[in-house]
Write a protein that binds this DNA or RNA. Sequence first.
DNA 1: TAGCAAGTTGACCGCACGGTCCGGTTAGTG
DNA 2: CACTAACCGGACCGTGCGGTCAACTTGCTA
Lengths: 199, 199
Amino acid sequence: MTDTRPPRADAVRNRRLLLAAAADEFAEHGLDASVADIARRAGVGKGTVFRHFATKDELIAAILIDRINELSAVGERLLDAGDPGEALCEFLTAAAQQRQERDLSFLAEASGSMREVAQARSRMTAALDRLVERAREHGAVRADITGTDVLLLMCAPNYVAGSVPDASPDLWRRYLAIIFDGLRPEGAHALPAEPPRFA
Amino acid sequence: MTDTRPPRADAVRNRRLLLAAAADEFAEHGLDASVADIARRAGVGKGTVFRHFATKDELIAAILIDRINELSAVGERLLDAGDPGEALCEFLTAAAQQRQERDLSFLAEASGSMREVAQARSRMTAALDRLVERAREHGAVRADITGTDVLLLMCAPNYVAGSVPDASPDLWRRYLAIIFDGLRPEGAHALPAEPPRFA
DNA sequence: TAGCAAGTTGACCGCACGGTCCGGTTAGTG
DNA sequence: CACTAACCGGACCGTGCGGTCAACTTGCTA
């Protein structure tokens, strides 16, 4: 009965423009980029924003889901890669690279609890879990770390490098390397706390 | 000529109350805890807040400076400790512990560029630099990391553990241990980017 | 204990935000 | 080409914020 006609051409165009403009605006001004500025940047009225996304949080969620899905695709592709240790490292590099060109990590704090975001995230963590498992079996990472550990540590290099003004755009690689060395079996010391169940 | 009389007793009491209430309120509600709520929590009128701190940012800076100075004291005390590697690890633990009981890291983003905050911070980094230098000479950490590296990585364990809901209060210790293993000379791989000059 | 400067208060201001709404516009259909 | 449902725009609303101010209170000094 729900005879859903396909959306109009200008509507799909505006939706795409809005997502892009919002991502730019959030990257520049953080979570409190205003909806009005986003609309202006997209060359569109403010009302149009709320036609496509019922609330500001829903817009944020849409951006977040897109990015998480990008990472899921990378992870799933790497599951067939040759060297499991190399594959894990590449995944972490891809994740950090995504955040380097546009840091939108703070978006999670606004809409991280939405159901659709959680779904996208669980698809990504599934891929990461398998990636870590393979690397562990292959002896590329220490035995006492879990996929969740890596998921959490994954965000650290950008976070660390992000607090340096005028930093080299490759600085995060330095901290990813240090942290990855900490994940290696060689010279590992016992860990003082249990790994977390969920993230 | 500037005959500065000592401040009144109720004024110093209110200032202390305000700093404590503000720290609590910021810890609970983040950067956009309202000045009105802070005043209410301190049992004081809103106008009193602005008598003591010209702007909200100045209040934030005052809290930040107190916390940084606490860390400086710890660092300077540890400079005389026996084992340099142990001393560095203890300093990082103290820093993480401070942030565990009350995470106020986001305060830096609001007033991190103020002159007085920068002064306090440079005192702390000086202590940390010496701590790292001693540990390096002692062979407790790898040769290619700097004090600034450690300053940046210092904040990572709480950041990482902080995104886990209902986490064990000791979870940060796990990630501090992993990162510290990454700082050790054993099994270290070459780092792909230059260390940053300033933080 | 009298006097006053320092301190306190909360009503008030201007502003910017997220979100609404309706008159005008336009893309797609028959 | 004409019709209409989907879409667009931007004036508008309520809210809550940081910050001000003038009347009032109080700790200190002489």
